[in-house]
């Protein structure tokens, strides 16, 4: 991260082995329903052949370091799943945008909106 553009050797941000980092904090949480659904969508759509685990990882890597620091694991995963499904041509951004707009009108919480 402290690399200047001149020092850049091609190592990408996700390739973390051996980089300096702080202590390992034993953090964990149980997964929320929406996170489990993201996980399930990833497994189902890749097992149906719409993308590969490498396609998912590629999208996660291409989101960049800022996204890794800013968003949670399954937030990045749904973005990567969506990216791959769009690339697979399963639906269009227009369809997605319209559906997301409709979902938002249902209520202010995940419970209300995911009826």
């Amino acid at each position: 991260m402290s690399d200047t553009p001149k020092d850049f050797d091609g190592r990408r941000w996700h390739d973390m082995g051996g980089q300096p980092a702080g202590p390992v904090k034993p953090a964990e949480h149980d997964f929320a329903l929406w996170e489990k659904r993201v996980d399930a969508l990833q497994v189902l759509m890749s097992s149906k052949g719409y993308f590969t685990v490498d396609g998912l990882r590629r999208a996660l890597e291409d989101m960049g370091e800022d996204a890794y620091e800013k968003y949670s694991y399954y937030e990045r995963w749904i973005a990567a799943v969506n990216q791959n499904l769009i690339e697979a041509g399963l639906y269009t951004l227009e369809e997605l945008g319209a559906k997301m707009g409709e979902v938002k009108t249902r209520g202010g919480t995940y419970g209300d909106a995911s009826a």
């Binding site: 749904i78 369809e95 997301m100 919480t109 909106a113």
Partner: peptide
Amino acid sequence: NDTPLTYWQTMEIAVREIL
């Protein structure tokens, strides 16, 4: 389920329902 709906949650619902 009782925290404010986020952009990414909205996307999960939408992607799932479209599929």
